[in-house]
């Protein structure tokens, strides 16, 4: 049962999502190999090689892999899959973009965003925005699977180092071209790996008011998220969106401010360990999932919270 994991990296290290995919892959079987494709990504290949559960790293170096465009990466994976039974990746936008293209070429279905491995052919996955959990069984020998990162632990560093083998397959279908990328980045932790998240909704009223949340987030070392309504209104960029069709998160602490708690938003955060809701409407559905709900005007409550947290820090 050989498994290939598609890695995402920043050339230096693997993304945490990939380390979670490695954990999921190890639950399916072994050996687990990792493909690190990119331009100038030798360090990331080394990081993969020193991750627990990884037996071998395939390192593909080529400028056409730099931006993870679907067509060239799928071409590479389709070739490699003649040697493997499973292809696994995190359900990030890259994983979701690339894996189904490979699956169709292998004439298999993709099993999307699994949350548990029952056995090599049987998996659980959420459907209907997480309002139901389906147990699905595959009937094919080869399987292509994406994993929901909130459901698996991050693979640890290993004391030993796995073999790294350089591969050179340079087919490029030439169908797509990278133009540019606008990535906001910044000092704050990434939403999908943050321990604490402070999210704002339509109740924030403007992008400027998000500064209130940023100040709280800074004190907690937290990431900042948002509801779809806040993104659609242009308060914050699209990558902040938490929910069924945005990012799925499960931090230790999720603070929802001025968010009503629509099904689609809950789908992205209801597995958080502790949920705090600040909303002036005591009937807002967000309170039904909150451990600590505060019925208050956010423009009073958030500055107060900021002050209280400031006191603890001192």
């Amino acid at each position: 049962m050989s498994i290939l994991v598609l890695a995402e990296h920043n050339n230096e290290i693997l993304k945490e999502a990939t380390k979670k995919a490695i954990t999921a892959a190890s639950k399916i079987g072994n050996p687990v190999h990792v493909l690190v494709a990119g331009a100038d990504c030798a360090n990331a290949a080394n990081d993969a090689a020193s991750t627990e559960g990884v037996e071998k790293v395939l390192h593909a170096e080529n400028s056409q892999y730099k931006n993870m465009l679907s067509e060239p990466i799928s071409e590479l994976l389709i070739d490699l899959m003649s040697e493997y039974d499973y292809l696994v990746s995190a359900a990030t936008t890259n994983g979701k973009n690339i894996l189904p293209r490979v699956a169709a070429k292998l004439d298999v279905s993709q099993i999307s965003e699994i949350i548990s491995v029952i056995n090599g052919k049987t998996f659980q996955r959420p459907i209907y925005a997480g309002n139901a959990i389906a147990t699905v069984e595959s009937s094919t020998d080869k399987n292509v699977i994406t994993i929901r990162t909130t459901a698996f632990e991050t693979a640890k560093d290993s004391k030993s180092t796995a073999e790294i083998s350089t591969i050179a397959i340079e087919k490029n279908p030439g169908l797509s071209e990278f133009v540019e990328e606008k990535v906001s980045g910044g000092e704050r932790p990434e939403l999908t790996s943050a321990g604490t998240i402070v999210s704002g909704g339509r109740g924030m009223q403007s992008g400027d008011n998000f500064k209130l949340l940023e100040s709280v987030a800074d004190k907690l070392g937290a990431a900042v998220g948002a509801s779809r309504a806040a993104v659609d209104a242009g308060f914050v960029p699209n990558e902040y969106q938490v929910g069924q069709t945005g990012k799925v998160v499960a931090p230790e602490l999720y603070i929802a401010v001025g968010i009503s708690g629509a099904i689609q938003h809950l789908a992205g955060m209801k597995d958080s360990k502790v949920i705090v809701a600040i909303n002036k409407d005591d009937e807002a559905p967000i309170f039904e999932v909150a451990d600590y709900g505060l019925v208050a005007d956010l423009f009073d409550a958030v500055p107060d919270l900021d002050k209280e947290l400031g006191k603890i820090q001192k």
Binding site: T122, P126, A132, I133, G293
Partner: peptide, 21 residues
């Protein structure tokens, strides 16, 4: 189909509703 659904269940319910003053 190549993948069949064996069963569908409700997810474990989250117990919320706690309030602070």
């Amino acid at each position: 189909p190549k993948v069949v659904t064996k069963k569908v269940e409700e997810p474990p319910a989250r117990i919320g509703g706690g309030k602070v003053e």
